[in-house]
Every structure is written in C-alpha cells, then in structure tokens.
Amino acid sequence: MSFLYVIRRRLILLLLVVIGVTIITFAISHMIPGDPARLMAGDRATPEIVQSMRTRLGLDQPLHLQYLNYVGSLLQGDLGTSIRTGRPVADDLVRFFPATIELAAVALFFSVLAGVPLGVASAVYRNRWIDQVSRTISVTGISTPAFWLGLLLIMLFYGRLDWLPSSGRLGGDVTAPPFVTGMLLIDTLLAGDLAAFRSALSHILLPAFTLGFVHLGVVTRQIRSSMLEVLQEDYVRTAKAGGLSRRQIIFGHALRNALIPSVTMLGLAFGDLLYGAVLTETVFAWPGMGNYVVQSIHALDFPAIMGFTVVASIAYVLINLLVDLTYMLLDPQIRSVG
C-alpha cells in the first residue's frame, strides 16, 4: 500500500464527496420551507418586490439549472451569497473559521493533557479504584450535554464568581489585534499586546474546557483500550520476564506503541471537535463557524448552510488523508504489509 495509492483513493473519495454533498445539501435546502426571495425582501414587501427579487436570485429557473449554476460557481470558489448577512458565503466562512480552529485546538489540548494520563493510569491499574474513577470521568464526559455544561460553567464562573467572561472572544477594554491568522491567542502575541492576549485567553477558557471535557472521555477510552491491548502483547510479556521494571515497560515500550493508533484518533478527534463546537459556540456566543451555521439554519439561509457543509465535508476528507499518511509514516509495519 503506497502513499500514492492512499492519496489517489482519498482524492477519488473527495470528488465523490463533493458531488454527493452538493446534491444532498441542495436537495435538503429545497425541501426547506421558506422562499429565499421573500426572506430577503423583508416582511412588509409587496408581492411585486418579492417577484423581482426571485428573478434576480435565479429562483425562477428550473431546479437542475439552479444546481448546475451552483456547482459552476462552486468550482470558481464562489459559494453564493448569504441571505442572512448579504455577504459572500466564502468570505463569511474565512472570517469565522479561525475562531473555530482556535477553539478546537485549545479544547484538544485540554482533552489530551488530561485524557492521556487518565487513560494510561486506567489501563495500568485495570479494575482498581483509579480505573473506576477514570472511567467515571470519561463516561461523564461522553454523557454530558455540552450545551448544559457550558451553561453551568457560565453560571458558576461568570454569574457567581465573576472570574471569567460569558461570551465572545475579546473583552471590551482591549482592541483587537490586526488579522494575521485570525486566531486571537496567536495574533495578540504577534502584536505584542499582552492585555489583549490575557483577555483572549480568559474568553477561550470556558468554551474550550466545555468542548474539551466532552471529548476527554473519547481520548481516555481510546488510550485505555490501546494501552490494554499493547500490555497483553508478547514483547511486553517478554520484557516483563526479562526483568525490566514496570515503569520502564510502561513508558519505554507500551505507551509509545499505544500512542500510534491514537494518532489516528487525534486527527479524527480534531475533526469531531470542529463539528462538535457547534453547540459550545452557540452557548458561549463564540463567533465561529458553528455559531454561524446554527444562525443560518434558524434563518433558513441555505446558501450559507450548503457552503458550510461542503467546506466541512471536504475538510473532513482532507484530515482523514493527513491522518492516514501520518499513520503510515509512524508505523512501518503497516507500510510494508500493503
């Protein structure tokens, strides 16, 4: 199984995904009740105004033509114009994407920071109290509705303690740094504005913790089960028989091998976090893609919904491709097998 094979397979899939996603979202968006022309014209508009709007949007053309028009402009990087914001969807996505990446990255950091030690401890001390505690934490994470946890945190850290802000990305007392990456934690540092960095950090803590906690369970479970598997492998037993200390075995051999399948997991987790951010962003009014898509759904802004879905699905396939390639690099065994 060569790199080229994997890349080719993924690219074919990418093509299929783009076709499939556009057809399906297009179909859904035309099932959605709500005449976009009416929506754009405003409540009190007269029928004549609505009709002229319809013509302008090309909505009086047959469906298949509308679809071809959409795909045609999609190929030129044009995702259409948002009904809600009146701006090109592509521009909107570029504006909101970095906020979501930043949130997902910090959340992933949280969940790995806590999840890997928990998972390892859980596997090593299998069925002992530490395992039970770690499993309880991870099941709690998986079973917690993110939107509710977010609200509880706001209630506590904002409402009662007044330590952390409840919404947004930046405080009112600082100015936004110039746009470089769009990720405020980085941009504020690049601008050398420590006060703004602190403000950005204080804003991201609660949403990132919420998102990270919900994901913590996934990480812990994954580490635990791959660690358990590795601990039962022959070479670990051999090492044990050979008189290596427990610590040497765990950290020298087992952990490294257990982490390899986790790379896949990390990549996929990042994908999940990007989508999972939808609810968290809604609760914390985090101006990212998730918030954007929820508001678009409420406004039945289907160019925006389609744009988001297409971009997110492509991103998902690309992340998968990257994960596969990394995996092959890390694990020579798999490379030679194919």
Partner: peptide, 20 residues
C-alpha cells in the same frame, strides 16, 4: 463514505429544519 463525511450534527440539524 460520502454520508460519513458529513458533519453529523449539522446534517441532522439541516434535515430537521427541512422536515419541520
């Protein structure tokens, strides 16, 4: 594969919105 590369929650939201 195509269906799996949809963001599930967003897909469910879009479907639910479409169905009412």
């Amino acid at each position: 594969d195509v269906l799996l590369s949809f963001p599930p929650l967003v897909m469910a939201m879009a479907l639910a919105a479409a169905l009412g």
